[in-house]
Simulated assay, not measured.
Amino acid sequence: MNRPAITLCFALAAASLALQGCAVPQPYVPPTPTSTQIRPPVAPPTSVGNEVAIRAISLLGAPYEWGGNGPTSFDCSGLVRFIHDQLGIFVPRTAAEQYSAATPVEVSDLEPGDLLFFKIKGRISHVAIYTGEGRFVHAPQTGRPVELRMLDDDFYRPRLAGAGRLF
């Protein structure tokens, strides 16, 4: 072999070894933070009301069942009670009892997680969870699953008796 061919062979062998070294996985070692590094922003903690609203939204589509209080089917007050129970908040069972136990809130001051109480047939008999932006989640009646409605709904708006908070 001539000298240029030998040099080429050595060069190819060295390159091959170098490339094999790149293929060996190395454990990741994160950099040690220093006090001068900027840390990413921390998400603000979720308020209880927002958590109530988020959990209500997560149950959209669950079937209605008279007397249902979860985890797979609900009536209106059972939905409210199930969500609050998950958060360690005691809630009475019926819509009328929940209305009596709630701290009143002006409709103009509604926040996510507040409860909306409706008079149907002359008495408080329906409750829903306000989710913000004029919307609420409720378990309406047999044959209709947990759903999202607008506060200005033609059926519900004239029947709105008040609002309250249980947290």
Rank of each mutant, 00 (worst) to 15 (best):
R3W: 12
R3C: 10
L8R: 11
C9D: 11
C9W: 10
F10P: 03
A11M: 12
A11S: 11
L12W: 08
L12V: 14
A13E: 02
A13N: 03
A15E: 04
L17E: 09
P25S: 15
Q26S: 10
Y28M: 08
P30N: 01
P33N: 07
T34E: 15
Q37L: 14
Q37G: 06
I38E: 10
R39M: 12
P41V: 09
A43Q: 09
P45Q: 15
V48S: 15
G49W: 05
E51K: 11
I54G: 12
R55P: 04
I57Y: 05
I57V: 13
S58D: 15
A62Q: 10
P63H: 08
E65A: 12
W66R: 07
W66P: 08
G70R: 04
T72E: 14
F74E: 01
D75M: 04
S77E: 01
L79V: 02
V80K: 05
V80S: 07
G88V: 13
I89P: 06
V91K: 00
T94R: 02
A95K: 03
A96Q: 12
E97W: 11
Q98Y: 05
P104Q: 06
V105I: 14
D109G: 03
L110K: 00
E111M: 09
P112T: 10
D114R: 00
F117V: 02
K119D: 08
K119A: 08
I120Y: 08
I129W: 02
I129E: 00
Y130L: 06
Y130R: 00
T131M: 10
E133F: 11
E133M: 05
R135W: 15
R135C: 13
F136V: 08
H138S: 04
A139Q: 03
P140F: 06
P140Y: 06
P140V: 05
P145A: 13
P145S: 11
E147Q: 15
R149Y: 14
R149F: 11
M150S: 12
M150E: 14
L151H: 11
P158E: 11
L160G: 10
G162F: 00
G164I: 01
